[in-house]
Simulated assay, not measured.
Amino acid sequence: MIQTDPLLAPTRLLDFESPAIAALLEARGWKALPPDARIGAIYDFVRNEIAFGYNRADDIPASQVLVDGFGQCNTKGTLLMALLRGTGIRCRLHGFTIHKALQRGVVPELVYPVAPAEILHSWIEVETGDTWIDLEGFILDAPYLTALQRAFSDSDSLCGYGAGTECLNSPPVEWTGASTYIQKTGIARDLGTFETPDQFYDVHRQAFGQLRDWLYRHIVRHWMNARVRRIRDGRLPLKPGTARHRHEGDAHAA
């Protein structure tokens, strides 16, 4: 019996054999690239062609993230893993929690006080050569990150609006063959490594509770996505405690 490498195998969430993902892999021709270029091309696709935004849940299949066309750390990570495995690149998930302050400015202020203190987070570890590197810098698409850099050009430290970095103006987010990060300074707890996102979500779930989960899926995430679009357009809602900047007129935006 043929044994499948567990770090290359498809799963319910890593459904790279689904028609949508199989068609994408064929159209992009990534499998024909050398491994380093293959990782970079897939990373750039997930970073910039899948916009930063909030899906209905963390544990949705990669094919659904592709259809949505947007995602956050966990969902974009699932898609990244599926595309990497679908082209023969070994990868795994590293789970964490992040402090909710990292999401302030995106989460509406009406909701922020009742949000969980820690939010489920993950990055992807990919094997390249004889080493493993961390990939987290794909979370924020370039237009969104540029909007943050313009708004906070006077500071290199930011924890909010979906970013957690001490080098905002030149964060390590471009693929160079080394680790990439954009939310690292917001990390609260290390939950360890997992072969698949399926295993991760079997053990760890966001602590919303039934009512808050329903509100998130049907109302709150739509508010958050509207805020993300405004931020990407350069209209930042001001989060409490942030020094005023040129977008202060939007301080009371929903």
Rank of each mutant, 00 (worst) to 15 (best):
E127V: 05
T128Q: 11
F70W: 11
W123S: 13
P197W: 00
L215S: 12
T146R: 15
L80W: 10
A117C: 06
E109Q: 11
A82G: 12
F16N: 06
E195D: 14
P171A: 01
A41V: 10
E136I: 01
I2R: 11
R85C: 12
P34L: 00
Y201K: 08
L145K: 02
I124R: 03
T185N: 11
A57R: 07
R28S: 13
A57L: 08
G53D: 02
A151C: 12
L14H: 05
M1G: 12
V67M: 10
W30P: 15
G77F: 05
D44M: 05
D156T: 04
M1V: 13
R28K: 15
P6F: 00
L66E: 11
P34V: 01
I98Y: 10
Q149M: 13
W30F: 08
A62M: 06
Y181N: 05
G162F: 03
R104M: 07
A41L: 12
F45S: 06
T75I: 12
A115I: 00
L148R: 08
H247G: 08
A37Q: 15
N169K: 13
R217H: 05
R56Y: 09
H247K: 02
A101R: 14
E174G: 10
A253S: 11
D141V: 00
A243P: 15
L13N: 11
L110N: 03
V173N: 05
S63F: 08
S122W: 00
G88V: 02
A57F: 01
T180N: 09
R28C: 15
D250L: 04
I139M: 07
N74C: 14
A251L: 09
G209D: 06
E26L: 13
R85L: 07
